[in-house]
Design a binder for these strands. Structure first.
Lengths: 243, 243
DNA sequence: TTGCTCCTCACGTCACGTGAGGTGGC
DNA sequence: TTGCTCCTCACGTCACGTGAGGTGGC
């Protein structure tokens, strides 16, 4: 009927901003059916109805382009758009859920080691990234099961033992002992035992671990709290195990 | 050490694009530590490490600004960022899940009425929007329970009865009968009964329904498949019920 | 005349993608 | 000389937010 709204009035009724209505006008989504002599926008009841539809569809998360085509009957039908939108959202939700899991895992890992400094958290994140790049999904599942079986107390014990190994090796290095020396090899064997129990004896996992350590040396060393020289000494000691 | 990568090489190793590295350079997130005489970027091993951290954090969905501050120790700590990110994602996920539910409800409603034309889907969406605006959460829960109790067969029956009411009223109108006429009032009573059974006798729900119908006349009429004159005739008949 | 609403540019957002036009090293 | 990589602008994306500077109606 004769009812005509100015842009500010329509904005208030619809809960949108004036700028938004200007934008819809600019892109041709909702052009006011009339203007005053001074050029002020006048929206009729048809316009208001159209706006209702538009904002309903906006609340469903559709793009303005899709909305325009759908309302004008050009592009996809409403049912198609909605079906697509559902599929799209489902994918996003799943991705986000996985992300949340990862983030929580990182926080948890950092808390276990009581390493909440930013630097160490960053290492922890990189470790996780490397971990996910390194192991296949099956391998990760296996490792997760083992770590659950081991329990948090067991993990702490393992960390403790690793710390002992590195401390002893560093000691030996500073005393000028050869990495192949029997007293050092004793510690190397303990290290190997720890690796065995971590990998659960799975050769594939062990291989992946070895490559990961080689490719990310710097980061690994930092995560273990040892420097490059210590790292090299450790590597030599481990290499000498075979002989 | 002496290892120096050009931008293309680093891009390939990191799985990012050259443009991305340019961008990181431009915003100061990762500036190559050297350039050739010709101005070509040269990335050292420190740069590579920094990039590793950056892309790890990027995969967690953090913004480049946050990443920069976190790595350089300016802004929030890593733990804070991650905690915030988790909270943020949880909220988004919930919102998206609600959206999916709404979208599915709309598809379902449209399918029930077998009204899959775009126009009718749009009405259905608007109905849902109005529905959610109109009723409080409690009221919606009540209505949902009632509709479940009624079952899909019951809903279809109700729709059928509404169609009968409107058809009969239109008939009466075309024959020139007064809306207050006894034969019309019989149908008005049936309509009232349908409303009663829809609202479950809840006066709050009934009030909300009345306002919603008044405020969205045009859309409601279209959804019911009647025109304005029929709508007015119906309103008069219902108003006459009291007398 | 004073407010209030209205108008039209036009830049900024976020993390790059995508050319455009040109130079350097093998 | 021919490719290939490298360089620096600079516009586009998506749905507006946020001024800037000016006009119109009560």
């Amino acid at each position: 009927m004769g009812m005509q709204l100015k842009v500010g009035e329509l904005a208030e009724r619809s809960g949108l901003t004036v700028r938004t209505l200007h934008h819809y006008d600019a892109i041709g989504l909702l052009k006011p059916s009339a203007r005053t002599q001074a050029g002020h926008r006048l929206y009729g009841s048809d316009d208001v109805e159209r706006l209702h539809r538009i904002s309903s569809l906006r609340q469903l998360g559709l793009s303005l382009a899709d909305i325009g085509e759908c309302i004008d009957g050009d592009g996809s039908t409403g049912a198609e758009l909605i079906t697509r939108q559902i599929a799209f959202l489902r994918q996003r939700i799943e991705a986000e859920q996985q992300l949340v899991e990862r983030l929580e895992a990182i926080l948890g890992q950092a808390r276990d080691g009581e390493s909440l400094s930013t630097g160490q958290i960053l290492d922890s994140i990189e470790m996780t990234t490397v971990f996910e790049r390194t192991y296949s999904e099956q391998q990760r599942a296996k490792l997760a099961k083992r770590s659950k079986d081991t329990g948090s107390a067991g993990m702490q014990a393992a960390q403790q033992q690793w710390a002992e190994v590195f401390a002893a090796m560093n000691d030996a290095r500073l005393r000028g002992l050869d990495p192949a020396d029997a007293s050092v090899q004793k510690w190397a064997q303990r290290a190997q035992g720890l690796i065995e129990s971590f990998t659960g004896g799975d050769p594939g996992i062990k291989r992946s671990l070895t490559t990961a350590v080689q490719e990310n040396q710097t980061m690994m060393y930092r995560a273990w709290g040892i420097d490059e020289e210590q790292g090299e000494y450790y590597s030599k000691a481990m290499a000498a195990l075979g002989s």
